[in-house]
Write a protein that binds this DNA or RNA. Structure first.
Lengths: 227, 227
DNA sequence: AACGAGTGTTAACTAGTGTTAAGCGATTGG
DNA sequence: CCAATCGCTTAACACTAGTTAACACTCGTT
């Protein structure tokens, strides 16, 4: 048997937290239970788990805020949010970013296990190669080149390559605007946002030869690379 | 033989409830009988059945109210209402929303079985694809595009795509107004409702090339996408 | 130092999206 | 038939995103 997967579980309701923890442990996961977002962040820094399960509604620091902070450190770690039924579709969707998923309370443990395994599978696949296939393009991230079918490669700039790389890592999911701004520009102020607009335009131009590829805007949240 | 289907049956009259339960169990369904709407709701949360059979007239919580609450959690679960003959046609029809059906008392067990199987088939078909055929249109939900025959695709906005997606998931059935408002807008207040009106208008415009498609209003309840 | 190519930012303008408002039309119950 | 309610449509508005071009900076070359 392989190494157990480390999971960080942030859930303020002790009874529920304990049930989830024990259920996951019977499935051979190692679970670290934290009772609020603040504690969870410190635990994250110390333990570096492979996956996070975060309750959205928590005292001290809510799950979304916590996720944003952790995403600054690591933008590939899979996160599953536990949401109350009152959360609206749009908000939850906006946060379903970068290897995230969500589960509405109440849920069955089986549902949770399925999502955990899905996310772990997905992230495993991503890690291997730095040469990515986008529709009819081949994107070589280290070389910063983009090749359409058998045509000559186009050189991408540093910014273009990084932006595309992040879009690719979250393909078919919404990539959060402010997340990527903080990651690549170090700020999400007005000017950085305008600058990003420009790069989105540039990428769209360079990707338009295959019209099955689209960078779709999700108003208020970010972009989704469809391919 | 495959897994038995879990059915939640809410029926306040013990004798009738028991008959239905036993009849369904001989057909290899698993039936959980609840004696009122309140108990049924708790049982729903705990058991997550695949289909609901709800008596409309029940003490504590009637079938329609119960259905509305459950629809907040899950807008795809099939529901069959058992109605007294005194229920007016209109009210019953209004609640025949999102994978719902109804059966007038008295009914034969065979009628009930037929409806159960119909609804289960229908929901199974829907689940798979995110690219949907609407008459002569192809609706690609992830790409947020709508293509009429061989013409160029029209780009839909985020809201338009979501609204259309929900209409499609419940095509030829009534989609409840407040349900969709809560789901997409997070509230069903006056302004959200006006906003939704606008989007219905927009979708109607974009779908008018195929006049076999219609978004029909059901006054007081919601909309039905006919195609 | 002066030049030029390449890269990214700032600016100005244009376009798109969703909400609010207002007036009109349709349906229903009394 | 009238009044009340609900739905439809258009347009104005505020906000967000997209596009283009000018500008500024860096870096290597002359």
């Amino acid at each position: 048997m392989s190494e157990p997967i480390n999971i960080l579980l942030a859930e303020d309701e002790p009874a529920l937290g304990q049930i989830i923890k024990e259920s996951l442990e019977t499935r051979n996961f190692k679970v670290l239970l934290c009772e609020n977002g603040q504690i969870a962040y410190d635990a994250y820094l110390k333990e570096k788990p492979q996956l996070l399960v975060l309750d959205v509604m928590m005292p001290k620091k809510d799950g979304f805020t916590l996720a944003k902070e952790i995403r600054m450190e690591d933008d590939t770690i899979p996160i599953i949010f536990l949401t109350a039924k009152s959360q609206t579709q749009d908000v939850v969707e906006g946060f379903t970013i970068g290897g995230n998923d969500y589960l509405k309370k109440p849920f069955s443990i089986e549902e949770l296990i399925v999502r955990i395994n899905n996310l772990l599978d997905r992230t495993k696949l991503q890690k291997n190669s730095e040469v990515l296939i986008i529709g009819d393009y081949i994107f070589d991230f280290p070389k910063q080149t983009l090749q359409f079918r058998e045509e000559a490669s186009i050189q991408l700039t540093h910014r273009e390559a990084h932006l595309l790389f992040h879009l690719m890592k979250n393909k078919n999911e919404v990539l959060d605007r402010s997340l990527i701004l903080n990651k690549l520009w170090g700020t999400d102020d007005f000017f950085a946002a305008r600058s990003m607009d420009v790069f989105i335009t540039k990428l769209r131009k360079k990707l338009k030869q295959d019209d099955s590829i689209q960078i779709v805007n999700v108003r208020g949240f970010g972009y989704k690379l469809i391919c």
